[in-house]
Nucleic acid binder design. Structure first.
Lengths: 260, 260
DNA sequence: CGAGGCTTTGAACTGATTCAACCGCAGTGG
DNA sequence: CCACTGCGGTTGAATCAGTTCAAAGCCTCG
């Protein structure tokens, strides 16, 4: 009934709970309190006596996979550090990047609806996530007023982000890229880092795939933005000079050249 | 922090709770039971003694607006009949169609995260929705085991749909259109109608906007699909002949022509 | 230092847009 | 009853934005 289910599901991933622990035996014992989780996800709930409930961490190294499409859904995650990418595998084997979760993002929501994940979640750099088993979420929903609402908020937030992505259709490549940079800037700012200067956590090819353009086009569009004075960049370091202009970039009317 | 908030918000819509009742004074008294709602949204929960709790309906006529971007978020809706379109207004005033909720869809989720709606929800034909105030949802979440989970499911389902839309980037126009048609077919089938023959509820221009192509391109691509024998169409009536082929349409390799 | 991944640059090509005209139908009003 | 108007849809022709292919430059890391 939902055609993404018809994807050619890969063999079960190596990274179910146990395997993960094996890969990072020494440091996997990390955990966070419920209070820390709520801060991270921007949830305000009355935690009652669960304040200090401890939640396991999971670590994934660069290029490692957190979960694959088709794997049974078990739990949600909150990104505590690092950046991941979400990829869906097409019927034809084509890969499509659909998101870059980072600190504060709720990860794994794609698995709730059909009991199995629809995307593959890969780490772009060494990352750390807080594990939130569904049973725990349900328990907290029952006894902590506001917790369910918080999860709703977080999920709605993820949906809002998807919407803002979908909004980019029909824009020129430069405009799409401009908004992408602003989106990253906002997210870095929300994480407490500098808004206007940051490192791109992903290669050009992933940006291109994500935005629906060739990686060569990403290069050229970035260069063009730099020539316009809106940004400056060297390698993966981006500095945003004119956020307003980046946001309002538009396809200029056809038979209309520069004036004065 | 989230740039969609910077949209030029329209003046408050005409259709807050009271205004809506005024527009449809005679028939607005319709309501559904909680059990009916759960069936519609595919929620399986223990409803306890709330089985027959009644939920108000809301009717919107063709081209009327359910809510506008910027309006305060109050409640969710479940589409009981009809088709709507979700539109976001760009900074530049450009409109972007981001979805076509229909029977069984959960509507309004875009408002949860930031307390105000980010999209404008317009009826494509006379439609009827069940109103789900957040207070009711929270109450039911507390006393009906499985209800919160059901809402999570529904939200995750909406997110999955968005993902499948995002997956279409990077495909040719014909392929995007093919998947769009399949998506509609699946949704009609889920609603109990015929899968392979249906009416497009929206004009070509909305399809084009939604898929990120000019409406002329929609025309041409539809014609092309018909010439390939994958569909047949007259006006807004579509008949799908080869769903498999529609799904696997792909950009054929550049320097490679037909063989034998 | 060398290999391989990432990025940039160049040049040809093409799919899609744009602009413009036209068709057909529905509703309106004379 | 029929011209008139407007909207949705189709078709055609010119143009362009972005892709594709190719090659070279540049970092990083073993």
């Amino acid at each position: 009934m939902f055609y993404m289910q018809e994807l050619p599901l890969r063999a079960g991933g190596v990274f179910d709970d146990d395997a993960l622990d094996l890969t990072v035996p020494a440091v996997a014992a990390q955990s966070s309190t419920l209070a820390e989780l709520c801060t991270l996800l921007d949830i305000t709930a009355e935690l009652q006596n669960h304040q200090h409930l401890r939640l396991r961490h999971v670590r994934v190294h660069r290029d490692q996979t957190l979960y694959r499409a088709g794997q049974p859904f078990k739990q949600l995650y909150a990104v505590k550090a690092g950046v991941l990418k979400a990829v869906v595998l097409d019927v034809n084997g084509r890969e499509q990047v659909v998101g870059f979760p980072m600190k504060g993002s709720l990860v794994g929501v794609d698995g709730i609806a059909y009991g199995q994940h629809m995307v593959e979640m890969v780490a772009l750099c060494d990352s750390e996530l807080i594990v939130m088993p569904m049973s725990t979420i349900r328990m907290l929903g029952r006894c902590c007023p506001g917790f369910s609402r918080g999860i709703y908020y977080a999920m709605s937030g993820e949906l809002a982000r998807e919407l803002s992505v979908n909004m980019r259709r029909g824009l020129s490549t430069k405009a799409r890229l401009g908004r992408f940079l602003l989106d990253l800037a906002d997210r870095f700012a929300a994480m407490g880092y500098a808004r206007s200067v940051f490192n791109l956590p992903m290669p050009r090819s992933d940006i291109g795939n994500y935005l629906g353009m060739a990686q060569e086009t990403v290069s050229r569009a970035l260069l063009s933005l730099e020539e316009d004075g809106l940004i400056s960049l060297s390698q993966r370091t981006v500095c945003i000079h004119d956020a307003e202009a980046l946001l309002t970039l538009k396809r200029l009317p056809r038979h209309r050249a520069r004036q004065t």
